[in-house]
Computed example of a mutant assay.
Amino acid sequence: MSRLLVVTAVAAEATAVRAGADPSRADVAPVGVGPAAAAAGTARLLALAEAAGHPYRAVVSAGIAGGFPGRAPVGATVLAARSIAADLGAETPDGFLPVDDLGFGTSTVAADPELLAALTAALPQAVVGDILTLATVTGTAATATGLAARHPAAVAEAMEGYGVACAAATAGIPFAEVRTVSNPIGPRDRAAWRMAEAFAALTEAARAF
């Protein structure tokens, strides 16, 4: 049976996923923080598995995230309908232009429909929407408001999903992104973060793998 690859940014997220995932069905590996590290690390693991004659059947980007207030509360599990590189583009006097409008590719990768449907069925309480990938996480109310306005379907933001999605697309492998919310997006109030709750929710979500 071909296996599922689950990639996280850091070891703590991988530990939480391993606590819930079936080790006979899924390999879990931290690949680094940010879209570049995530893309490179995921691509390497996918290439090694293919070279060994045991390609993965799908790849999931998993970890914790910030949630947009009113869309995904702290403690929620979120599933990406699309993973969007929200800061890939250009500033202009009239506002931000995504790379799509510049004619240099796309900032959006849709989750594999069958994989998303399976995860949605296994996690019926999950919030489904777009998950933004940002190399610089949001730390002000103004940025949070701007992102929410530009991306009305966004429910959360993290730093790796789009990179993992690009690696999966290049390899021709189904992709999905699963996150649990540790904090609201906006001003960075570390005292309000609920890391333990988010890691516990991530372990529960990983049972779907």
Rank of each mutant, 00 (worst) to 15 (best):
R3M: 12
R18V: 06
T106K: 02
Q125K: 14
A38N: 12
G95W: 02
I64S: 14
G32Y: 00
A117K: 08
G89V: 05
G66P: 10
A126I: 01
S107N: 15
E91L: 12
S24K: 12
V60H: 03
V10P: 03
A49H: 07
T133G: 07
E50H: 15
T15Y: 02
G41K: 00
R25D: 12
D22Y: 07
A196W: 04
L119K: 04
A156E: 14
I131Y: 10
G139Q: 04
A81C: 02
T140G: 13
L5C: 05
G75C: 01
T120Y: 01
A169T: 14
P73W: 09
G161C: 13
A208M: 07
A76R: 06
T140I: 08
G67R: 06
I185N: 05
A200T: 12
T140A: 10
R3A: 13
V128M: 09
T138Q: 05
A122H: 02
R71D: 13
V155L: 11
G186H: 01
R190M: 08
H151Q: 06
R25Y: 05
G105N: 05
A208C: 05
V128C: 14
L97Y: 05
A9F: 00
T133K: 06
A201M: 03
M1E: 04
A198W: 01
G139L: 02
L79M: 11
S24G: 15
A205Y: 01
P124K: 00
V33A: 14
D27C: 02
A81P: 01
R188A: 14
P187D: 15
A36S: 11
E13A: 07
T120C: 02
R194K: 13
P69D: 14
A90F: 06
S24T: 14
P98W: 04
V78E: 12
A26W: 00
T143Y: 03
A19S: 15
V31P: 13
P174S: 12
P98D: 01
F96Q: 09
A76C: 11
A141Y: 03
G41A: 06
V109C: 10
F175H: 15
I84N: 02
A171M: 13
G70Q: 13
A200V: 00
E204T: 14
P93D: 14
A9H: 09
L202K: 03
I84Y: 05
V28F: 02
E91I: 00
T92I: 00
G186N: 06
Y56Q: 08
F199G: 02
A168E: 07
P113C: 05
A90R: 14
H151P: 09
A90G: 06
C166A: 15
A144C: 08
V99Q: 01
Y162W: 15
I131S: 11
A171I: 08
T133P: 12
